[in-house]
């Protein structure tokens, strides 16, 4: 194999600014998205993901302008998620310069939307974001379910079945976030990651819980993820993307150096 495992820094964007919340509270300002994206590109990021967490729909246009500005000077793949509900939303983001669009809640409420969007723009542009939480009790076989609204609303959907269905409906990639781990810095839910990665025929991006570089390596080696996504460890300059890649290379993982 010579296909590299990818490291994807994620920027949570609120009203055009990069922020990072720990479990969606305590949101801290981490700068201008264009500057941050440029820095990640120079450090060797393989892709960049923007999650628009702007609450007010009045301010949704800001993320479009952010993507436009980034796409003018950063020549690596860009993914945008957050508030994508219609094929028109998908096309607006792609036209702004995004390469992929992440669909989350809208897929849960209307799975046909994923089918429609992937038929229109191609599976390669459609990422389905899955927020999963463990629902099995200690000692029971593992079971994870899909949650929406930042982990607050349960749906009763089994995470593995849901991931398979989404791949079947045309998702070109799965962005998997453990809601138990997101913001905790104690590492990915590796069992969840592996269960999904082995169940679907499309690439899986592991997300949620990265606190150090070893966690990233674990996501690939034990979680079998094709890519690993992290936000805060890169935002606050705890580690650079370059250091993350060195670490992964040391662990025998093929990366783009």
């Amino acid at each position: 194999m010579s296909l590299a495992k990818r490291i994807i820094p994620c920027l949570d964007v609120d009203n055009g600014r990069v922020v990072k919340g720990v479990k969606f509270v305590d949101i801290r300002d981490a700068g201008d998205p264009v500057e941050v994206a440029r820095r990640y590109d120079q450090e060797g990021a393989d892709e960049i993901t923007f999650l628009d967490i702007t609450a007010s729909s009045d301010n949704r246009e800001t993320i479009v302008h952010v993507v436009e500005r980034v796409a003018e000077e950063v020549f690596i793949p860009l993914t945008v998620g957050g508030g994508i509900r219609t094929v028109a939303d998908v096309q607006r983001m792609l036209n702004a310069g995004a390469d992929k669009v992440a669909i989350n809640t809208a897929a849960v409420f209307n799975p046909e939307f994923v089918k429609e969007a992937s038929e229109r723009v191609g599976s390669q542009c459609i990422v389905v974001a899955i927020d999963a939480k463990k629902v099995s009790a200690e000692g029971e076989p593992n079971r994870w379910e899909i949650f929406t609204h930042g982990g607050r609303k349960e749906t009763g959907l089994d995470a593995i079945e849901w991931a398979k269905k989404m791949a079947d409906y045309g998702a070109g990639e799965i962005l998997l976030t453990s809601m138990d781990r997101d913001g905790t810095k104690i590492g990915f839910d590796l069992e969840l990651t592996r269960a999904i990665a082995e169940a679907v025929p499309v690439p899986v991006i592991a997300s949620g819980g990265v606190g150090n570089l070893e966690h990233l390596a674990e996501g690939v080696l034990e979680g079998k993820a094709d890519a690993v996504l992290a936000a805060s460890i890169f935002h606050f300059a705890e580690y650079t993307v370059g250091e993350a890649k060195q670490k992964m290379a040391e662990r025998g993982i093929e990366v783009r150096l």
Binding site: S2, Q124, V202, K224
Partner: peptide
Amino acid sequence: NQKEAMLKIPHMGWNR
């Protein structure tokens, strides 16, 4: 064996 080899399609990412 695509599944065993974990060859995910689409071929997505940075390759030589």
